[in-house]
Structure formats: C-alpha cells, structure tokens
Design a protein around this nucleic acid. Structure first.
Length: 569
RNA sequence: GCAUCUAUAGCUCAGUUGGAUAGAGCGCUCCCCUCCUAAGGGAGAGGCCACAGGUUCGAUUCCUGUUAGGUGCACCA
C-alpha cells in the first residue's frame, strides 16, 4: 500500500530542502474536516528564524503536488494540512484486502528475528486463579501478533515447578498424603496439604528445616522425592491444560525451572570468575547497591540454588538455543526490581550483546478484589475455570432470552463468554491494576468483546440477508464509498498494520483492543447512516463489500487477541 | 526509611515519542425496532487533566517538589 506519510514527508523535504526527520512530525488533525495529515511548522520556526505561518505558506507555495496523491494543502495557523486523494486511498485499501484477505495487516518486518515470549508460568500444585489469567492472555496475544508480523516466535510456559515450596509439599504429602484422594480435584487437595504444612513450618522451625532438606534431596535426584514431585507435576499440568484449551492458548515449550537446575553451577562459576560475587551470612550475593537495585542472592547458605540463579541459567540457555533478539517476560509488576537485577547481571553471562539488550519485562498490573488482596487461605481467590464457566453460563442465559432458536448455542456461548473475559484483560494499559468485579469482567454491553463480536456478526448477516455472494473487488465502483461513514471505515482499515506494529513496539495490547472498538463503532455508524441493501446495484455491491472487508479485519484482529468470532449472536 | 509505578467526567478507562475545541464506555435525562439483528444507534447533562512550581511560542503529556494509593527491598517464586 502507498504510505501517505512517507509521500508527504518527501514532498515537504523537497519543498524546503531540509533533511530533518519530517515524517515523525506529521500528525493527525483533531478532526477530519481539517485534513487527513497535518504538519506543524512550529519546530522549524527556530531553525529557519521565520514565523510558523510564513514557513507553512512557503511550503505550500513550493510543494510539488503533481501526481494525484494529494488533493489539497491548506494552511491553518502554523499547520499545513494535507487532504489525500480519497479515491486512491479507497482503492489502495480494498486492493490490498482483496489480495491478502485474512493476512491483511501481516508483514515481514520480523523476518529473521527470533523472539521468546514467556507467559502464564503458573506454580504447579497450586490453583490457577485470576492472578494467572492476565499473563496467560497477554502473552498469548503478543505471541500471535509477533508471529503475524513475521517474527520467529517461541512461546514458553516457564512452570514454577521448583523451590523450597516443593520440599514443603513433599513433607506434607509424606505426613498426610493417605488422607486425600488425589484422583478427584487434585489441586485443591494439594493446596490443602500445602496450607497445613506451611502452618506447621511457622510453628516449628525444625519442620521448616526438614522441608528445606527435602528440596535439597530433590535437587540431588533423590528417588522418592522425585517420584512425588513428578506426580504433582502431572496432575497439575492436566488441570492447567483444560484451561489453556478453553482459552485457546498454546505453548511451544513447557520447560520450567526444574529444567535449569543442573545449569546453575556454570552460571555461578562464570559470575564468580567476573569477581562480582560476594559472600554474606553464608550465602552468595551480588551487590547492585550502586545501581540502586539492592542485592541479589544467587546461592543460599545451604548451597541450594535460588530462582535468580535459575533465571540466569535460563537466559544463558535460551541465548544459546534460540539466539533470541528479544525475550519477553510477561510477569506482574511485583517483580519489577527483580527483573532489573537479573537483566543487569545478565551482562556478565558471556552471551551476545543483542540478547542482553533484548531482555524485556512486560510488567502488568495486579487483579485485586474490591475487598483487598486475594488469599488462597481465606478462600477469596477466584479460579479461572470458575470464571470462564460463569461467563459461559451468563451468555447462555442471554441467548436463551434473545435468540432462543439459535443453533450451536453452547459453542457460540463459549466464544462469547470467553471473548468477554479475554477482551476485558487486554483493553486497558497493562501496568494499571484491575479491580475484579464479576459484573465488570462479565459485562457484555458497551466497550467489550461481545460488542465487537456483535458488530462482526452484523457484517456477516447483512451479506446473508442480501442473498448473494460477496461481490468481487473488480465489481466495486469506488465512487460509491466516498461518503463520510464509509471513508471513516476505510481510513481505519488503512491503519491496521500500523496498529499491529505499534503493539509490538510498545507491547501494549490495548492499542489493538481500542482500534477494534473504533472500527466496530465506525461500522455501526456506517450501518445506521447507510442503507446497505438498496435498489441501486452499484451501491449495494460497494456497501456489501465494505461490510465484508470490515468483517475480515474485525475477525483477524480479534483472533490475534485470542478471541474467536461467533457466526450468530 | 530507600526504590519504583499510578493519579484525566459520579464510576471504568483512552488520549498517537509536547500541538488546533481533552475523548469513549457504564450510570443518569430524553429519543429511535410495520424498514439490513436494540448485545445496537442518536441527542443532552457531567472536567482546576491530584496539587504547587519550572522548561517552552505552546504542557494532560517533559523536569522538580508535595499529597494520596499500589508494589518491591536476603535464604519464598
């Protein structure tokens, strides 16, 4: 597609023969009547020692508008406002859509680049609650989007399958395991055991010592401990997979922390070789106080490894195995400082510089209850499968009411309910906390996933109602799409690939969710303004075609977020 | 205590690396299904962009300070 910004920047440069970065100065006017692109001349005023108005007028007088890309240039205040040729714009967008269809918006900017996205990463033997939902859904969306942009992406579920907690679990299981039937609802039972042993540890320092020792045994490959640990892991993965299936989330690898346990010694040796490791109270630490990052422990006093060491081993392993250009950690902001620490230490791991630079913490806000923090012990956690099932139930009720004869009700209710939950988790700036509220999370009106689905279904049903096939691009007369409502849609469609690139640059999913809302609103406006099925064959074809392509982009964008489109609503 | 993040309509949030009149949704008041799905659309009310300074032709946006809240600071992950 023609890049209008590039073209305009080029023309401006020629008109005043300057080499500044013009393109980045170009912006969009607050409203469309003023123009499609605006060039503010204020920043040039200083260097050129002329008033912005004069500069704007000079550019206007000298600019070469041959070729019919630009229809008109206006000076308003210190702004130079450009009106692009709408017919060329419409033709460009529709032609591109005709060629690429579902791949419209995709690109090859990521070709040859490797990206790792680490997301979800729940602790095994613990419930999968709404605290884990955001990382899962955000990571999955980023995974899809990077892939769509041509990157070679590896999605990793870095399971929390290691650490003292398992020493505790093993001890608890040893003591009370025979009281529980782990075939039914195993995670709740394991959680129960964990709470019991944890309480005991608090009362009795000796028990805690035994637990730490169990973990040490596990690290050393003790047969009994490994066997129980494997059992916990299998049971947990089975449960988690059910949720991943519901959410449509996939991973390329499940190598959790345990996988790196035998790789920590090398890391410690390298770091000690750099002379940055100190001994303190029997433990080994790296002092990052001068960087304002506190100290980072890399080995406990009893010789056990700790998460930081395993994460560093992970970085080294991934650098070697995947040669990554970027490695994204989708983890809540509680661990901001921790990631700063290990990214700082990663500089000493003898890995390529591009890998060190590519380490990135995608930090997101916490999901909290209006009553305060969630607590497993107090039973205030909301489990993800409960949430998803409740979402589906509520949608089912609504469908029964509004559309009782609907086919595949269960299937569609699933798409809608889960779509609402996913959308809700992606639609605000990631760092902000969320208050969990059933009615907000499962709201189906207004700016929600179901709204976008509803508008999508509408694009489909209009075509169905028209009782004909989607027209061919060659049949479309562009003159029938120059009204305001149609143009508004076309302009949004034109921006789609820029939006995706922007998501990948900022790792902010809300850029895409907001965009889809805008597109859906624009279609809704178009639908209300314009009769689509009319007596005029040319108009009908053009409008049906616009409905069709809008549907494509709504579907593609939603799919990237992990949201499926229903056929009916 | 130190570090870090957040603060925009009654509520939940957008606001394009500083720009033209600060925008949505929910809720509230009206209006629109004999006509392509009302999970929709239209109109209206609602703002000292937390506060105070500074930088700038220009600040919701950048800097400093203040206030309020979140989070993190050694053998848990």
């Amino acid at each position: 597609m023609i890049n209008f910004k590039d073209e305009i920047a080029d023309k401006i440069k020629k008109a005043i023969s300057i080499e500044d970065d013009i393109k980045n100065l170009i912006e969009n006017p607050p409203n469309k009547d003023m123009g499609d692109y605006a060039f503010p001349c204020f920043s040039l005023a200083k260097t050129l020692r002329k008033s912005p108005m004069i500069i704007a007028n000079e550019i206007k007088d000298n600019i070469d508008l041959s070729g019919d890309l630009i229809e008109k240039v206006d000076v308003q205040g210190g702004y130079l406002n450009f009106f692009v040729n709408k017919k060329i714009l419409i033709n460009e967008v529709l032609k591109e859509l005709d060629e690429k269809k579902e791949n419209f918006g995709s690109s090859n900017i990521g070709n040859g680049k490797n990206i790792i996205v680490e997301y979800s990463s729940p602790n095994i033997a613990k419930p999968f609650h709404i605290g884990h939902l955001r990382t899962t859904v955000i990571g999955s969306a980023l995974y899809n989007i990077y892939k769509f942009l041509g990157y070679n992406v590896t999605g990793i579920n870095h399971l929390g399958d290691y650490g003292t907690q398992f020493g505790k679990m093993i001890e608890g299981y040893k003591r009370w395991g025979n009281e529980y039937d782990l075939n039914d609802n195993p995670i709740d039972k394991l959680m129960d055991i964990y709470v019991r042993i944890n309480n005991l540890c608090k009362e009795d320092e000796n028990v805690l010592e035994i637990c730490r020792d169990n973990f040490k045994k596990l690290e050393e490959g003790d047969e009994y401990c490994t066997k129980i640990w494997n059992k916990f892991k299998d049971l947990s993965l089975k449960e988690f997979q059910r949720i991943y299936d519901l959410l449509g989330v996939k991973f390329d690898s499940f190598t959790g922390e345990a996988f790196y346990a035998d790789k920590v010694d090398d890391v410690c040796k390298i770091l000690e070789g750099k002379g940055i490791v100190q001994e303190s109270e029997g433990a080994k630490i790296i002092d990052l106080e001068d960087k304002g990052l506190g100290v980072c422990m890399i080995r406990k006093a009893n010789g056990s490894s700790i998460y930081a060491t395993r994460d560093l081993a992970t970085i080294r392993y991934r650098a070697k195995t995947y040669d990554f250009d970027k490695c994204l950690y989708v983890v809540a902001y509680e661990q901001n400082q921790y990631f700063k620490q290990i990214f700082e230490i990663a500089k000493y791991l003898d890995i390529p510089e591009k890998c060190v630079k590519g380490l990135k913490h995608i930090s997101y806000g916490m999901t909290r209850l209006s009553t305060g923090k969630m607590s497993t012990r107090e039973g205030t956690v909301v489990k993800v499968d409960e949430l998803l099932n409740e979402a589906i139930d509520r949608v089912n009720k609504i469908i029964k009411e509004k559309n009782p004869d609907m086919e595949n009700r269960e299937e569609e209710a699933k798409k809608i309910g889960i779509g609402a939950v996913i959308f809700n988790n992606l639609c605000t700036t990631l760092v902000k906390d969320q208050i969990f509220d059933w009615d907000i999370m499962l709201n189906f009106n207004g700016e929600t996933g179901p709204y976008i689905q509803y508008i999508y279904v509408r694009t489909k049903s209009v075509i169905e109602k028209a009782g004909r096939n989607v027209p061919e691009f060659s049949e479309i007369d562009i003159n029938n799409l120059t009204d305001k409502a149609s143009l508004n849609i076309i302009e949004l469609l034109y921006n789609f690939s820029d939006v995706l690139v922007s998501v990948s640059e900022k790792n902010e999913t809300c850029i895409l969710t907001r965009y889809l809302l805008d597109l859906a609103k624009a279609y809704s406006n178009f639908y209300n303004e314009n009769k689509i099925i009319t007596d005029d064959e040319g108009i009908t074809k053009a409008r049906l075609y616009l409905s069709y392509v809008t549907g494509i982009v709504l579907k593609t964008g939603s799919k990237l977020l992990g949201i499926e489109m229903p056929d009916k609503m």
